[in-house]
Amino acid sequence: MRTALVLGTGLIGTSIGLALTGRGVRVHLADTDPDRPRTAAALGAGTDDPPGAPVDLAVIAVPPAAIAGAVAQMQRRGVARAYTDVGSVKGGPRRELGALGGEPATYLGSHPMAGRERSGPLAATADLFEGKPWVLTPTPETDTEALNLVLELVALCRAVPVVMDADIHDRAVALVSHAPQLLSSLLAARLEDAEESAVRLCGQGMRDVTRLAASEPRMWLDILGANPGPVADVLTEVAADLDETIRSLRALEAADEAKRADGARGVEAVLRRGNAGRERVPGKHGTAPAAYETVAVPISDRPGELARIFADAGRAGVNIEDVRIEHATGQQAGLAQLMVEPASAPALIEALRERGWSVRT
């Protein structure tokens, strides 16, 4: 791949432009908003000049409802040798492209499983896709050239290709992406009118489960509007679980000991099912989740504190597998939780204490 055209210079499109440009591909940027390609070009994602000849690959990074029309129009103009989109819904756009008379051979729908709560070109990064799954949905009609070009796109963005049927993909993302967004928003919405005394008690748990609620509503309305049935199916099952859990919790209030015991069993059952489901979530590098030891270190809100901890861990020969920070409410301090292999924890604790850190395990 020597040339590419990216239509849509938001977070995903600009990040693709940054990744391709950084690996020597000449990238042309286009958008319905002329300011966005200029911004993306200024960030180094390519040029906002139109291509003078057909490019190798056109990447359509627009809302799901606009994908089929954009692909069909580009195919009629002969803009590229092959076309892909990066929308989060795959079945509907493919069927719509067929209805519009589009060419299925040169089009391959794809979906990088990466994103951020922020949107727009200024939120883009060249490493957004590194190590992330990138779903490809080829059909028997897909040309080998189109498949190879999209595989090259995935490789240049340092993502991991995953081949799936389009409709299976849509049901999968309803469970692992679209429904979680709504559930996060529903829980965060409880805070809108909550007492200030309750809001002040929010800790890391609440921050974790409401992180997705910071996402752009208009963008998510486009996504959910393109995949409403599978998302509604997931939420219907969640609603059934909620009803059963509510009944169990009410039973815990009963005077009858047998009812309280039934309620306890019901609550325990959903918690254990949650444990079992959480264990299936891939861990580091897509492998099974590892049982890491957590070494907690209080840190002040000063520049360089985290860098000092990582440097001290490096000098001790310990690899930090993961890290999270729990902020102290109303204080310029927090707790850095360093996840390491259990066998490495004693060495890390000793090294940090020798260098003056207060360590909690």
Rank of each mutant, 00 (worst) to 15 (best):
A307N: 07
A72P: 15
D233I: 03
E305G: 08
A126N: 14
H285T: 11
G205C: 02
A72T: 12
E130L: 10
V154K: 11
T329L: 03
L122H: 07
P289S: 04
D127G: 12
L182K: 08
D262P: 00
A240F: 03
H327R: 13
Q181N: 10
E103Q: 07
A351R: 07
T14E: 08
A336C: 15
T139K: 10
V270F: 00
A19T: 10
I325T: 12
D208R: 02
P303W: 06
N148H: 08
N319A: 14
M74P: 10
A30R: 11
D170G: 14
K132Y: 12
I60W: 15
P54N: 04
L212F: 05
L201M: 14
D262F: 00
T106G: 08
D256I: 09
F310V: 12
R324E: 07
A174F: 02
E354Y: 00
G78T: 07
A198K: 03
G8N: 06
E321I: 11
K132Q: 14
P217G: 01
G283V: 13
D85K: 11
A290M: 14
R250M: 06
T125M: 14
G102S: 11
V267P: 09
T139H: 07
V267H: 10
R250S: 04
R211H: 05
A61E: 10
I299Q: 15
D233R: 12
A159S: 09
A251Q: 10
P289Q: 02
L156H: 14
V25T: 15
A258Q: 15
E257W: 03
A333P: 09
